[in-house]
Amino acid sequence: MGERLVAVVGYPGAELLDISCVTSTLHVATRLGAAPGYRVVLLTPGGRPITCDSGLSVAGHGSLQRWTTPVDTVVVSGGLGHVAAAGDPLIVTHVRRLAALSGRVASVCTGATVLAAAGLLDGRRVTTHWNFADQLARDYAAVHVDPAPIYVRDGNVYTSAGVTSALDLTLALVEEDHGPELARRVARALVTYLQRPGNQAQMSMFTAAPQHRHHAVRAAADLVSARLDADLSVGALAGHAGVSPRQLTRLFVEHTGRTPGRYVRRVRAEAAAHLLASTDLTVAAIARRCGLGTAESLRTAFTAEYGVAPSRYRLGCRRAP
């Protein structure tokens, strides 16, 4: 049945994880029975070894500028060298040429900068690492940058967020090529507990602390994380934090970008997502545990945050037996 040829583009200062998440995922998919399987080549300027931004060197399989064989997918890696790569006419020209030989074009993290420099993202909705999203939007006005999702598909162009989101993107490509069953088996083999949907936010409410750690915001947020099934109304949170409800609302908007109510709903939805993916609890039981009360309330809050119903989310995340 042949094979799916995937070209990963690397350059000096590329992020090693941006490369290896793609190559390892496709290797595992092939080993687990993808038909046709994947053959991955790493293309570098001149075919020379590249030094990644971690200091490790990686040998290329071929020369970016001399590659003429059509490929199924081209994936441009990100890394701290992305600005220099986007400013290198050789890299940009041959990425553009290689894209014309490809059925799909993708980038990991700041690799979107290289695609943008090649004019491949004009008029498209894309994402990149949240820390570089504003810069990408400023430098390339014709590109519609959405810093929130883990990955975005716009036509045959795929862009993903930072570093390990390459795993989510590649699993999505495997699912597109071979169906959800193989994608779940690959995710299981890679010991990733959850294949996240592309519209899941890059920054988790459990890991993204408010930028300005005001004591009242911190106290309220800590209560939310510890007691999802408690009374988390604005009044209850304000009483716990020792401020008025009006002051707490102002502080939350200032330090988190959300009202207390929206913050609570987001955290409860994230907790529900974790339970849907990792347990066999009923939707009603998860709703009670996360403080959302009823299955219908959970469906409403979950769909508002993730764009899919809880049952559909669980189906997409369930591991293969």
Rank of each mutant, 00 (worst) to 15 (best):
V243W: 06
A34N: 09
R262F: 00
T303P: 01
E270C: 01
L190S: 11
T303N: 05
L42I: 14
R319N: 06
Q247L: 15
R188C: 11
V145K: 00
L98R: 10
H61S: 14
F132W: 12
D222R: 14
V186L: 09
C52Q: 08
G316C: 05
C109L: 04
D18Y: 09
A148L: 11
G81M: 02
V6I: 12
R268D: 15
G111P: 03
V126Y: 09
L281N: 03
H178S: 13
G307F: 09
A277P: 00
A172Q: 13
L169M: 11
T73M: 07
V243Q: 05
A208G: 10
G179P: 15
V75A: 05
G239F: 02
G111S: 01
S311N: 08
L169I: 12
V217H: 10
S160T: 14
I19T: 13
L276A: 03
P321K: 00
T249P: 06
L232I: 05
A116I: 01
T44M: 09
A189S: 14
P310K: 03
L276N: 01
S107I: 04
R314Q: 04
A142R: 15
C317V: 15
V76F: 06
V75E: 06
P36L: 08
A106C: 14
T44G: 06
P260N: 00
D53R: 10
A230I: 05
R265H: 08
T128Y: 00
L32F: 12
T256M: 05
A142D: 09
R4K: 13
A209V: 10
R289E: 14
G242C: 07
L237P: 06
L182A: 07
R31Y: 13
L251M: 01
P149F: 15
Y313P: 07
L237R: 14
V217Y: 05
V267T: 11
A137M: 05
D53W: 09
L115K: 04
M205G: 13
L182W: 07
A320L: 09
R227W: 02
G47L: 07
Y140N: 00
L275K: 11
V41C: 03
G47R: 08
V174H: 10
Y140K: 01
R218V: 15
R104H: 15
T164D: 00
R268W: 10
D139F: 00
P245H: 05
D18V: 08
Q65L: 07
A59E: 14
D168T: 06
H94F: 14
Y11Q: 10
V283G: 00
L169G: 06
L167V: 15
A320E: 05
T110R: 04
A273G: 04
R97I: 02
V157S: 00
L121T: 01
A137Y: 03
A236D: 01
A59G: 12
T279F: 03
E305A: 09
V41Q: 06
G103M: 06
V217M: 05
F206C: 00
T128S: 07
G60A: 13
S57G: 07
A209K: 10
S204I: 05
A59K: 13
Q202H: 10
G47S: 07
V308C: 08
L80V: 07
D53I: 06
R153P: 03
P149Y: 15
V234W: 01
R66Q: 14
V8Y: 05
